[in-house]
């Protein structure tokens, strides 16, 4: 093979993907959570941003489903990640970063409820104004349940407010299990209660909600 053909042959070989520059956004995005924590504790603000963007959906959803409104949820989200930032030196990788952050989010949310004196648990089995409005108007009548069932915004709001009326421990267990689909071991770590207890809370919450939805005519 001539030299030029060899050069051409070399040129045809698949090019190795260029390694992202150290400290660049691309490089940071390849790092695991613990490495990102180490980076931002050394002052790399981009590492913190990458970490927030990576986990914002899960953390925000937990907070939002606990408080039910976007305004306090935005503030509590911000407070959660600022606590993450300030306490990052205490984080050890024996716990998943999301577990640790959700623990912080939970504490921030509980502080908010305490501060605002907001939690007034109303049993789902009690009659409250508006309970006489049947939910069946918000869902398809005799259609069998299928992927095509359209869920109205109103129905979802009703369900959201029903969830808010559950006892707090049931509410957080339900959100983490049913909406965030976390394993019981992780939920147990976040809420600081044994797995069996958490499972019981989830089943109690599901039973209370389905009782309530049946009573409101969603059968």
């Amino acid at each position: 093979m001539s030299e030029s053909a060899l050069a051409e042959h070399k040129h045809d070989a698949p090019a190795k993907p260029a390694k992202p520059k150290k400290g660049s956004r691309e490089e940071l995005e390849t790092l695991d959570d613990y490495d990102l924590v180490k980076r931002f504790t050394k002052g790399t603000v981009d590492a913190f941003e990458v970490l927030v963007l990576r986990h914002k959906r899960q953390v925000y959803n937990f907070i939002y489903k606990m408080v039910g409104k976007p305004e306090p949820a935005d503030d509590l989200f911000q407070e959660t990640f600022l606590r993450v930032l300030k306490n990052a030196h205490t984080y050890r990788p024996r716990a998943k970063f999301t577990t640790w952050t959700l623990q912080i989010a939970r504490n921030v949310t509980l502080d908010y409820f305490k501060r605002e004196n907001l939690r007034q648990h109303v049993s789902l089995d009690a009659t409250v104004p508006g309970d006489d409005k049947p939910l069946r108007n918000l869902v398809p009548g005799n259609e069998p349940p299928s992927q095509d069932v359209l869920l109205s915004k109103e129905l979802l709001e009703e369900v959201q407010s029903a969830i808010k009326r559950l006892p707090l421990h049931q509410q957080e267990a339900l959100v983490l299990r049913v909406n965030e689909e976390l394993p019981y071991a992780e939920i147990s770590e976040i809420v600081g209660s044994p797995e069996g207890t958490v499972k019981y809370w989830v089943h109690e919450a599901v039973a209370a909600l389905t009782r309530y939805l049946a009573k409101r005519g969603l059968t």
């Binding site: 925000y60 969830i163 969603l218």
Partner: peptide
């Protein structure tokens, strides 16, 4: 029960507001 659980399992998953995110990054 599936019909009743459907809305519970399909609650909307909103995202954090851009303004809150921008404030957080600035604060950070």
């Amino acid at each position: 029960l599936s019909r009743q659980l459907l809305p519970v399992m399909n609650l909307p998953a909103p995202d954090v507001g851009e303004a809150a995110l921008a404030r957080l990054f600035m604060e950070a």
